[in-house]
Design a protein around this nucleic acid. Sequence first.
DNA 1: GTGAAAGCGCTAACAT
DNA 2: ATGTTAGCGCTTTCAC
Lengths: 332, 332
Amino acid sequence: MKNEKISMKDIAEMSGVSIATVSRVINQNGRFSSETEQRVMSIIEKYDFRPNELARGLRANKAQAVGVIVPDITNEFFACVVREIEIELLKKGYMAIVCDTNEAMDLEKKYIAMLKSLQVGGIIYIAGDTNVKCIENIPTVYVDREPMMIEDMMASTFIGSDNYQGGYIATRRLIDAGKKEIVLVLHKKSLTTQKRRLDGYKQAIRDAGMKFNENLIIKVENVDMDHGYEVTKKIFESELNPDGIFYSADILAIGGMRYLNKMKIAIPEQVSIIGFDDIPLSSQITPALTTVKQSYTEFGHLASESIVKMMNGDADYRKYILSVQLVERETV
Amino acid sequence: MKNEKISMKDIAEMSGVSIATVSRVINQNGRFSSETEQRVMSIIEKYDFRPNELARGLRANKAQAVGVIVPDITNEFFACVVREIEIELLKKGYMAIVCDTNEAMDLEKKYIAMLKSLQVGGIIYIAGDTNVKCIENIPTVYVDREPMMIEDMMASTFIGSDNYQGGYIATRRLIDAGKKEIVLVLHKKSLTTQKRRLDGYKQAIRDAGMKFNENLIIKVENVDMDHGYEVTKKIFESELNPDGIFYSADILAIGGMRYLNKMKIAIPEQVSIIGFDDIPLSSQITPALTTVKQSYTEFGHLASESIVKMMNGDADYRKYILSVQLVERETV
DNA sequence: GTGAAAGCGCTAACAT
DNA sequence: ATGTTAGCGCTTTCAC
């Protein structure tokens, strides 16, 4: 009940060895006899002792932790990526410190500062914007959203999907379904992800011999279900009359479908819908959402792998562009 | 580019004062002239210096951080609670360290150990189970899921919803809609939340002069959409023939609705559905889910408030039982 | 194989 | 108003 906090010094005294030896045993740094090891270990277990990570970190000049910056933890896609990262990092002996910025740039800055003062060894950064300068003096892996590399370009790692390909196959699918007026709903922020998807869209349109129409590209302020609903309402209340909509995120599509359902617009007969991400939810709604799958498992796995390498000085500076697949369900 | 890490010692040298003075300025502990303050501050800003939290924490014998343990970050309800907590804690100058345990008890133990060795000042604990012993020697706020208090009972705080009331009004609503065979889908784990909702259900049934039927209580292994689907399938493939289902979580209900839609079972004409939580998603699907609302905002707010009080020795040992409301939408 | 001791960056008690 | 210094718990050189 009242275990006063125990330190290595206490363990040392109780085992009748010096604190240096205790340290060696704990870190398995050799130079101790196996009898000593046994004795020390048994005391450690008896008191359930774990070394103070603050002191360790101070000594090592960095914590056994990595910061993870996420723009929106309530978006199932990011939540899944984060879970994956946490699990992987834990396996490797690191603690993940997750910071949800709610897409606010000022919070992002604040969290980066705090993470630095916490002396995290690295940062996994799912940026809220692309005008971010690279984080300085600390290993960083950029995930999903690629920052404008100002300088430092070669000293960083990026993990993202093939968004161009994603934009292309989604649009192509809609064209193949005979759709003629295809709206693309994009996130307003200047994200490379959005730009690439647009490029893919354009190319698919051109390849089909159709004419690219600027007015069919609609930007949305925020990526959530409400904005998906509102933008769709706006579209149908305008002079546009699309027979296909490609949303840049599943949750936008889900919000949009609510509007279509409400207005009794048949999916996919009147309007086909296609999303992006393939969050677990997308297979659950009715009709189930056709979408472009990004693998959050791979994102998380690669990100943790990569940041740990970097922290060990094992530079891993490159871009990983993961391929993307069309998941056919019921909305096209 | 190559700013070597700067410490208070460097700041002190550059400002021509002692490191103690720098410390006083930073912490606004008084006993320095305003000229000194200006000079020191300007250097600090120039170098964007922030004190090493590891060293601070070591000195203070605890970090300016609180651990947050969550059973499932991909569940929108918990994600929303976490967001709220993070924001509130940041305002108060604390860092949140979020640990997603994915409903695994062993991970939970591991994370608690890690948080302790990180010397967090407190823990906000949304337990995965109820058989948890209280966390020892560290201020803890239990949220949503109440642990069996072994000892230590009076030295802890709990924040939860009025689950009995929630169970009652949901069931009552179904009864009022004329439903006769009402299934209750519960989480299998021994959670007090589940038990209370069951109690509310029973009471409502009895109050209506109906007979409680044990067979109508179905337990589910895990709370996610897939389990919602599967359990609903199982129900309709059994000899049961419910005209109302009360799911103990919105995401279960959403999975269940997929099955009903697939089988062309009309909601709410043939079967009425009611959920629990009121996650943002529930208002977005078609038909929109009738549910019992728990306020994640209040959860998060109270939890952060309370843990900070406790860490300041300002004991706040009590139970907060938040009231709950029926949100009428389209599935009843 | 083991121990003594320095020092990581900071705060606070004690001088002045 | 400011400086000196001990010490938080740990790792790691350097002696033996």
